[in-house]
Amino acid sequence: MQTNNPSHILEMDNVHFSYAHQPVLEDINMKVSPGSFLGLVGPNGSGKSTLMKLLLGLLTADRGDVKLFGEPVKSFKQWSKVGFVSQKANSFNSGFPATVFEVVSMGMYGKVGLFRFLKKHHKQKVREAIAQVGMEEYMYQNIGKLSGGQQQRVFIARALVSEPDLLILDEPTVGVDAQSVTNFYEMLKELNVHKGITLILVTHDIGAMSDYVTDVACLNKCIHFHGNKETFEANREEMMTAMYGHDVSVIEHNHAHDHHDHSHDHDDLAGTRS
C-alpha cells in the first residue's frame, strides 16, 4: 500500500452479474473500509460465493466496477495481499500426496514470486501459520489423511501465511466442531483487532457471527442491508423476514458434501483470470 492509500479496501459500484442470462447479482454497491470485519449473510443461492468470485477476479462483472485496494480488479496485481478460503476448499483430490507443510507453503508462492524459492524465513512463516491454526502436530502428515475440519484449518493457514491485508472466507467453519468454531472466531477477531487485517466472512451462522463482526451485509440477488452491526441488530427481525421470510438465527447447513464435479469447477475460471 505504499503507492496509494485507498480509503476503501474493496469497492463495488453498480455491479451486475448473470450466469448465462440468469441474473444472479443486481446493482451491488458495497464499500469495505480497512480494518473492518464484514459478515456477509444470505440464503442458499443468493449469490454470496458469486460475489466473492467477482471480487477475486475469477468472474468478470457484466456491468459496474469492482475495485480492490483502490485499483480495478482487472489490473490488480498484488494478489498476495488477499487471502481466500473457498467454500469448496476440501473438494480437492484427497489422494494427492502432499503434506500439510507443502500445502501451506503454496500460500507463500504468490508472495515469493516466479523463479524464486522459499527461503528459511518463508519456511519459518509457514510453520508459524500451521501453529496458529493448531495443526503443528500434523505438519508432515499427508493432507488427504486428515479429517474435513482439520483440512479446513490447513486451508485457513494457507490463506494466512502470506500475511494478507484482506482475508475472504466463504463458509470456512463448515465441518469444524463447535469448540473449534469458537476458537476460530476468536482467532479471526484477534487477526482483525491486533493485526488490522480486514475480513470478509460469508456465513449462515448469523448468531455466532454477530458477536465478532463490525459490519453486516445481507444479500439476496441485491444488497438488502449493508451497515454496521448495531444497526443490523436493531433491525434484525425485519432484515431476516425480508431475506428469508422468517427470522432464522442459526441455519443447519452443511456444504461439505455438495461439491460438484471438480473438473467442471475449474472451467469457471477459463474465461477470466489466468
Partner: peptide, 23 residues
C-alpha cells in the same frame, strides 16, 4: 524453475489462479 507454480496448479487450480499464478 516452475516447480512451485506447477505444484500449486496441480493441487488446487482455483487457489493458484487467485494467488496470481499465470495459469
Amino acid at each position: 524453475l516452475f516447480y512451485k507454480e506447477l505444484f500449486f496448479l496441480s493441487f488446487d487450480e482455483e487457489q493458484a489462479v487467485i494467488s496470481g499464478i499465470p495459469r
